[in-house]
Nucleic acid binder design. Structure first.
Lengths: 341, 341
DNA sequence: CCTGAGTTTGCAATCGTTTTCCGCCGCTGA
DNA sequence: TCAGCGGCGGAAAACGATTGCAAACTCAGG
């Protein structure tokens, strides 16, 4: 009486064949082994019964669950939905189901969720929560679990990854500000335990260096997390220590939001009094006041590419690990202007 | 060599007991059947091997997958992530895994995804994509599939649902505008095949009626979808037909965004020239120009409540269907003002 | 009419659990 | 001393599919 889906056996009975034959008839890979006429009978029976193969039974036998896990910090951060869509769209096209887990940046929780995913026998994992020094994933990777990192990566490891071009993105942002005439350019960095936070900060230093501008250490602060609140805290600290940049490069858009809050607190108008560039081009930052200039990263593509890469490795386990970097582009809106003289 | 997770059998061997005993020892519900000392031995063995029960094998045997499906229009719409988080948080606490599927408002796709979910033997489904006239779900519901609707519901059906208070929300919005002195109040409605679109539009008419304001049919337009583009199209049509409202109530924030675009096209400033109220209080609408006044709906709660309700019904299948309505609140920001005289 | 190759089909084992049914063991009470 | 009982643990059958192997059948060629 409850959800009694028809089983393969029932289909077979209805078609008057053995369950083996039914199995073969319904599976494109083996259907050539069965007489075309029988195959049609079986398929008809399946259709009439609205037969759906039991994924768990199949998975148990084949030891492939046709599902992959995705580990995110937090789905609620607008950065991630596009990535997830990219992943889901390509995975679904190959018959895979996506399992999403939110770690909330909690290592304990992450470990639990990761275990749950493994208990569900996911065929692979896509990870967006990597810390540079992570060992959990490296270990699982050794053990043969297929995975790919998105957005962030792990230091010196041969886990494949797909990321945006953090370095180039920041370089473009800094160059843009310099061209506008800025020299006192600050950076509100992201957590240094993430590859993104670290790479972007390094890119900032290097871009300054390339332009022959000496770094004022007081203009370099780092937020503890990629959040509006932490971004604000870091920016506030900088201003309170008396520093007066004419432009700020934020490590991401959330942090930029925090900067905007601090500007407002201090009655500085953006871009008149101070310029700001974000990173990621999250949805809706084009509708802020002012519309935020930021580095666009093709998140949907990143997700899609990561999924493709995972599929590839699922099909061919010992492919060499590669890292894909997708180009970033600077999108200029209204949060940057020449410095006041 | 590949992902060879330890099996229950190996745990049993290591503990020197039969697999049956190992199973009982590890399962809290049956562990009282085994000697405490043996139980400890088994648990130790399990821990040492980092044993994780194979969810597929277990599910196959128990015919409970401990997973539930969630059907969304599009994860990329900022409305949904909070709902999903609410769902996931309570479901995860009970050991359930969440499977998310995006239908993109495509009925065909929805049908396929729904079938995939069933193939995965989900124990229940939470649906955010309902159309008022839906039959697909009603049918599955008859067949005993547990489900609950979030946000939207299906006409005259006994499928349980959790929604925000659409009627009251709009009523508050309209009353607020009337108190401000507006009388030419327009409504850009949402698709009428959704319960939200329809209920909100009715609430608009009724609120006007309650205030003794006669409805100008030209001030009532409806968008084909809950999107910025469709919202803009509908609003544009209204203005082009010569109507001059002093305030607009949008059926949701996306549509409100579209209205804002049209205001800008026509060089109308909000709220100076025209007031606007949205619906949902999506993330970031507080940072628009102007910060959007809107009806706040507790999306996380809605998700959490829906999950709880599903859990309840999973535990006790023939609970009577109930509908929960969560209160909406009007949040006033800067997009409404008294009409110009 | 028989042989053998080729095509279809069925049998049975199996994946890793859970669960029902039993049997063993030791203890108690008469 | 022995029947009976409770507590514990094992045997074996499932759950619904896939798959190696072998049986059955078809048909052509000798």
């Amino acid at each position: 009486m409850p959800t009694n889906s028809p089983t393969l056996k029932e289909v077979a009975q209805r078609a008057g064949v053995h369950v083996t034959t039914a199995s073969r008839a319904l599976n494109p890979a083996t259907s050539s082994l069965v007489n075309p006429a029988t195959m049609r009978r079986v398929q008809a029976a399946a259709r009439e019964l609205r037969y759906q193969p039991n994924a768990m039974a199949r998975g148990l036998k084949t030891s492939r669950s046709m599902s992959v896990g995705v580990l995110l910090p937090d789905l609620t951060n607008p950065l991630f939905p596009p990535i997830v869509r990219g992943i889901e769209d390509v995975l679904a096209a190959s018959g895979y189901t996506t399992l999403i887990a939110n770690t909330d940046n909690d290592l304990e929780r992450q470990r639990t969720l990761f275990d749950t995913l493994r208990a569900r026998q996911v065929d692979g994992v896509i990870i967006a929560t990597a810390r540079r020094d992570d060992t959990l994933f490296a270990e699982a990777h050794q053990q043969g679990l297929r995975m790919v990192m998105v957005n962030r990566r792990v230091d010196q490891s041969d886990i494949p990854s797909v990321t945006g071009d953090d370095h180039d993105g920041i370089a473009m942002a800094v160059r843009h500000l310099i061209e506008l005439g800025h020299t006192r350019i600050a950076h509100v960095g992201g957590p240094q335990h993430t590859s993104t936070g670290r790479t972007r900060q390094r890119a900032y230093r290097q871009a300054l260096d390339d332009a022959g501008i000496e770094l004022d250490p007081g203009l370099l602060v780092t937020a503890q997390e990629f959040t509006e609140a932490e971004g604000a805290t870091a920016a506030r600290a900088m201003f309170e220590s008396g520093k007066r940049p004419t432009a700020v490069v934020a490590a991401n858009d959330m942090i930029a939001l925090g900067c905007l809050d601090v500007f407002a607190e201090r009655r500085m108008r953006c871009p008149r009094d101070i310029s700001l560039v974000g990173f990621n081009d999250m949805p809706f930052v084009d509708r802020l006041t002012p519309p935020l200039s930021t580095v666009h990263v093709p998140h949907y593509q990143i997700g899609a590419e990561a999924a493709r890469m995972l599929l590839e490795r699922l099909a061919n386990p010992d492919l060499p690990a590669k890292s894909i970097t997708l180009p970033a582009t600077l999108v200029l809106r209204e949060s940057t202007a020449a410095p006041k003289v």
